[in-house]
Amino acid sequence: MSNFVELSIAKAINAGLRKAMQEDEKVILFGEDVAQLGGVFRVTEGIHAEFGDSRIFNSPIAESGIVGTAIGLAMRGYRPVAEIQFDGFIFPAFNQITTQLAKMQNRSEGFTPMPVVIRVPYGGGIGAVEHHSESPEAYFAHTAGLRVITPSNPNDAYWMIQQAIKSNDPVMFFEPKKRYWQKGPVNLDEPPMGPHQARVLQEGAQVTIATYGPMTAVALQAAEIAASEGTSIEVIDLRSLSPIDFDTIINSVKKTGRLIVASEASTFVSISSEIAARVAEKAFYHLEAPVLRVGGFDVPYPAAKLEEVFLPDADRILEAVDRVLSY
């Protein structure tokens, strides 16, 4: 019998971090306000009380410094888990992530692996000011040397953070901040699957929706509405954005013949674009309709009063469902 508990995504990440820290004393946590406060989203709440200053500490407000020192600590044999407070604050660290963290293993021809995890709360829908609601995942998926994963539910959050910490490659761990308080069952005994596998959340026959992170719940909602109207939709949670589990997507498209890729990110040059190109290449004769992308508009993330217009909702997905079914 497996040991299940009900946790929110935030608490599941917290529990996963604690477990990783208990199992390996080289795992250390740092970032802005992560210690006594527990981070602005309280994801690391209580960890300082349990593990103390030597394992979790606040960093100065200097994102490049956070990632640059994480690289040095990894060289020293630590397994740093660094928190970037908000998606929109990651850019001061962009240089260290893309030119150093991602390339160190390659530059050193394998002498210097980089077991570093960068945790990033991402996505919108929380009524925030500018730079607090972005979806920058494509920049990192585009960068060779990084692994990019994102959980959409508490069980994945609990296990994927531990898998990220165990990886000897750098992992960008994107946390859907709007869903931090979403609860669900967590199996404390057994991981559901590897961190780079996609999961078919719901089987269906007519249309596949591939999605990830914060949009997963929206896709499920759209599928439910569609089902009530007699349309059978298969929903895939990608979980990993680099590498992408194309086999799971292509197998689904071979069955349904129609694919919609949904995310909060602006669609131009996005994860969705890559999936559309791949599926066109690998499943061309199985497609009954063009692959459609549903996502944010190609504008800067808008002010909070407009974000509901910017972010795709179930209706925007259903509009795409109607379009793919019209072919």
């Binding site: 250390i28 410094g65 990632v67 640059g68 600590l73 990894a74 060289m75 030119t99």
Partner: peptide, 18 residues
Amino acid sequence: VLGSQVLHATGYAMGVKM
């Protein structure tokens, strides 16, 4: 990339002290 290695040295030195 100029200066990038100085942060790596800094992180390494933090680790040495830890």
